[in-house]
Computed example of a mutant assay.
Amino acid sequence: MPVPMDAFDEVRPAVECLELMPGPVAAAIGSWTGTVPVDELRYVDTDPDIADTALLVAHHGPWLLEQSANCVVVAGKRGGETTLAGCVVLSHTRVDVNGAVRRQLGARKASFAPMDRAVGESGMEYGGITPIGLPAGWPLLVDAAVTDVPYVLIGSGGRRGKLIVPGKALAELPGATVLDGLGVAQ
């Protein structure tokens, strides 16, 4: 199976493209400390009109779906307190919000965070939210299947551009917890 880099004409080291990403993402890549070398994080310029996974896969080929991941922001509520968290699952699955997420956050109720809050507090654009650069206090839940993918295509924080990173790098991000079963069949 090809790697995500095969789908794009130009793939550059992400550290050379910081000006193309929102501040929180650029800062996280600029101060990268993971065991995966920063030069293994790649940036590809993409058309913002096809930023959504289904459109991107339709444009580049169905094989890309197996190597793409989505990051969604969820809100867990308990006793009047709300905890925002990032959740990363492979694109052909969906986040188990009412099971795995709710249990992991110790929440009585969990749901997708309102778009304006997710965008406002992450500093990223809707349709481009990425786990790299999420606010420091947020838990980051990563499906174990994502960490098994040699290279995974994820958002870059904006609708224009994507990042290609080793799946195992996502397990090392601040606040990350790797969970089996976070992503469930759609």
Rank of each mutant, 00 (worst) to 15 (best):
A118Y: 04
A145M: 11
G137M: 01
A171K: 11
V152D: 11
L134M: 01
A113L: 11
A145R: 15
V97S: 06
R108V: 10
Y151F: 11
K168L: 08
A118R: 12
A171Y: 11
R160H: 10
R117V: 15
I129H: 06
T130N: 07
R103C: 00
G157P: 02
Q104L: 06
A107T: 13
K162S: 12
D96S: 04
M124E: 00
A107H: 13
P139I: 00
G157Q: 10
V95H: 13
S111R: 15
A110R: 01
P139N: 01
A113P: 04
S156N: 07
G123V: 07
A107C: 14
E125W: 02
Y126D: 00
G123H: 13
G123S: 04
G99N: 11
P131I: 12
A113C: 15
G133M: 10
A145D: 15
M124K: 02
V152M: 09
A107K: 15
V142I: 11
R108T: 14
G158S: 15
K109P: 06
P135T: 01
I129N: 03
P166R: 13
L163T: 13
S122V: 03
G157M: 04
G127V: 04
P135L: 00
V152H: 05
R102W: 03
V119H: 13
A171C: 10
A100Q: 09
P131Q: 03
E125Q: 13
D143M: 05
Y151Q: 14
V142C: 05
S111W: 06
K168T: 09
S122N: 04
L170P: 10
L170N: 11
A118K: 11
D96W: 01
A110T: 14
L141Q: 01
V149Q: 08
A107F: 15
G157A: 06
L141M: 00
